[in-house]
Amino acid sequence: MFLVFLEIRDGKIKKSSLEALSEAKRRADEMSMDVAAAIAGHNIEALAGEAFCYGASKVFVLENTLLSHYSPSGFAFALKSLIDEVNPTVILFSATAMGKDLAPRLAASLGVSLATDCIKMTANGGKLEVVRPIYAGKAFATFSFKSSPQMVSLRPNVFPLIDPLDTQGETVKKDVVLAEDNVRDQVVELLKAEGVALDVTEAEIVVSGGRGMKGPENFDLLRDLTSILPHSAVGASRSAVDAGWIDHQHQVGQTGKTVSPNIYLAFGVSGAIQHLAGMSSSKVIVAVNKDPEAPIFRVADFGVIGDLFQVIPPLKEELKKLLAE
């Protein structure tokens, strides 16, 4: 059995969790295995339906009021008790902030190794092979597992969703026995980051600015573009972040975030090697830069040599026109 942990945020299953579930369905079909999903929280049973649409034939609902707010220790404890009982062959997470926090804690409690943030998963006989970028994508390593269950987290925005199925499955409610002492690091407050609607790792379009943006106020030009582009977010190079022009959570690159959006628009980004590492897996890269020698042009699918301050205003109008169609 494949067991996929589904993350709930704002009362919904996260899209990247459904991506992991979709990938589980594809691989499990090849390996003639079942797919089950697990959700954890309080009064969340109604969410199981969506999991059936994306390939789960069974959904385990881990229920306890102590699970209504996330804690890595509490969630790992609850999941371990389920796993000890149902004994899955593969355990999948999405490599979100929660997935990266929780999966290793669970792996250690099970005494198994974990492959983080994988971008490819193939079935080789009864075993999985996974590819994970290392050195921020400057190298790709392929691993298989000697420990069981095989535990993997998948990079968001890489694995396509399956077409929703019109099926129902079995919901299995588990009242988790959990003492206060099992919950040692609970979230007590959720603070929305100011002005951030969508994280760069989750955006389908990333509009990024580098040193060529010249100052913090000019990032409004990029915010303008994201306000008209669907599912988009503002990114930045390390030099823009280090100059204090924009918060580090927007940083793309080796000491920032690795992104793989459908479209990466780079304005005034020179393309330092550590930046390229973080965005080279984008599906389409468009770059605007004054310097014809900028390394970003070596990875861009479409490059414009020019002044970003002159290109952005007409570009915004063109995009508006197109999106209005």
Partner: peptide, 24 residues
Amino acid sequence: SQLELIKMESPPPREAGKVIEEDP
């Protein structure tokens, strides 16, 4: 180690695409 490293390789190279220099 419980992970078996099967291979390590460079990421597939990205081809440079079209570059234009035109009026904004």
